[in-house]
């Protein structure tokens, strides 16, 4: 019996077939079946660029906009879940309330996918320093740091507002607020390395495109993709 991190009910984790015959240590589930089911996987027809679920078509309207702005150089984003109300509640509890332990729920949702990816560098999208002081942790690194090894090459200027407080239009108009943290040691191969940018939610793409702009200005040869748990 375990206690679900979200609803606090006791639950019996299902035993996977592979688990019985494997000698490896399996990660114990942190949430119950009912809570897990509240999170909706992205399925069906999806935007070939950013993974957004769509009725029809190949590229979503957001990506068409980026296509124009960046002359076709779109950012490929993988995402796993739809940003529904269950996810909203989870993110409010994790980010706004600062319930640090909930990073384990986000890890549970992204672990299988992320641990199988093969990039040279995993770069987390930074949160504003002010928020980080208040929360006493970095929301993105706290989730992904246990799954892959992070290179926190990006930093965020003080005083920039969180994207979550803005509407769609304001988000798109947000000015660049990232810069390269020169104190981070990097290897020679980063110039042409394969990089995965890590964020939690992809809403308009503004943040991730800014992060890519910032990296590209310093490392033009870098190959950059991105990952967000939600789209």
């Amino acid at each position: 019996m375990r206690q679900c991190l979200l609803c606090e009910q006791e639950f019996i984790p299902p035993i996977k077939f592979a688990q019985i015959f494997s000698l490896k240590n399996f990660r114990q589930p942190k949430i119950c079946f009912h809570c897990l089911n509240q999170f909706e996987k992205l399925t069906g027809n999806r935007c070939s660029v950013c993974s957004k679920m769509m009725e029809q078509g190949i590229i979503c309207s957001d990506c068409k906009k980026w296509q124009k702005i960046y002359q076709g150089e779109v950012l490929h984003n993988s995402a796993l879940y739809r940003y529904n109300s269950a996810f909203h509640d989870l993110m409010v509890a994790y980010k706004r309330r600062g319930d640090y332990v909930l990073r384990e729920v986000l890890q549970e949702l992204s672990w299988d996918y992320l641990s199988k990816t093969e990039f040279d560098y995993y770069i987390p999208v930074p949160t504003s320093p002010g928020h980080q002081v208040k929360r006493q942790f970095d929301t993105i690194s706290a989730v992904y740091g246990d799954i892959v090894s992070l290179t926190p090459l990006l930093a965020k200027k003080e005083g920039s507002h969180a994207q979550g407080e803005k509407n769609k239009e304001e988000r798109l108009k947000t000015p660049q607020s990232f810069f390269i943290d020169k104190t981070i040691k990097i290897k020679e191969n980063i110039q042409t390395g394969k990089v995965l940018l890590l964020d939690d939610i992809y809403t308009t793409g503004r943040t991730l495109y800014h992060a890519r702009d910032c990296l590209k200005s310093r490392f033009p040869g870098m190959h950059i993709e991105s990952f967000s748990i939600c789209r």
Partner: peptide, 21 residues
Amino acid sequence: ECKLPSGKLYCRACIGLGRAN
């Protein structure tokens, strides 16, 4: 029982009223 990265405890049970660290 839950800890922040600093090692300081925080209360989950009443976190809705603002985190008690």
